[in-house]
Amino acid sequence: MDISSFFNTYPGIHIVQAFLHSLTATVIADRSIHAWDIKSPLIRQRVRLIVIFVPIFSYPLYQLIDPGRSSISFRLGALLDSNRWLSLELWGKVPVSIFFIVLLVSTAALFLVQELIPILRHTAESKQSELEWDHPGEGSPVIGVLGDLPVEMPDIFIAEDANPVVYSTTGNNPAVFLTTGLIDSLEPDELRAAVAHEIAHIRRSRKPLLMFTYLLRVLQFFSPATLVEFRKVVEDEEKICDDSAVEITGKPGALAGALEKLRHGSADNIEGDNPAEMLRAIERMSHDMLIRNRIRRLTRGDAAQAEGSGWLKFAATLAAVLMINYFIV
């Protein structure tokens, strides 16, 4: 089977259309956020989720509505017919489809190296961890600090470790995990803000939406637009939890202070002798950029701005994405 005939099979057409549909959806979603000056991370995330959800389903959905959409006559009247580009040969020799395949493979490699492998490595490392996690004792200062948080408290676990670490797990037994290094390095208000942020994650993660979003993102491992937009969705998720933490504690400065202490201060340069080290340095640096962005936002007071539900903007964006993508084949 040659390349151009693969792009005429059902999986081939699905990949091509998911790729193109995610590109147009990204442009429309980003312009929508810009046009309405949407600042609320909740609304921004909702708009960006269109890019993750729509392209993977659009081709089978459109075909179900109109089987004639794959016909030649439809393609001739379409806004963009991918076949015209994919069957093109530059200087009569080099097929454009080769460049397209290189782009798909590069994106898949990027996904593997920057997302999947770090997740697997992190999972393996956390399984090997020898930290012993215990509930704080009756007279623990942590209980005193967190006791007055106006929310239902999940289980709290503490481990003896100098590294400042805080994270949460969700599911049937949600819990927040803190190291003594973190407790020692944060002021009481900052500790409260950090735990409130984790509680926000626990509250939101009860919804299976984010897990489903990640599954869809994994299925679109070949799409560069999905790669970029999913990262923005994750960034928005952090900001949503920041806003929730500020709502609980009423102190954005305390959360900004906690983030400042937790960020990787040494991640400003990409250095390393081997590719694996370089990769970790890039990971640290991008993580650090995200935290600095969140600190800036909390310091500016953006978290306090109310903006309405934004459903009309979401509906207009979704309608534009669905209508335009229908004519991209």
Partner: peptide, 25 residues
Amino acid sequence: FGFLSFAVTVAVLVGMLKVLNWLPT
């Protein structure tokens, strides 16, 4: 103004897609 700006964006995108569709021919 937001709606107007968004509508212009969509119109520009449609125009760009048409050009992209014409280019290979």
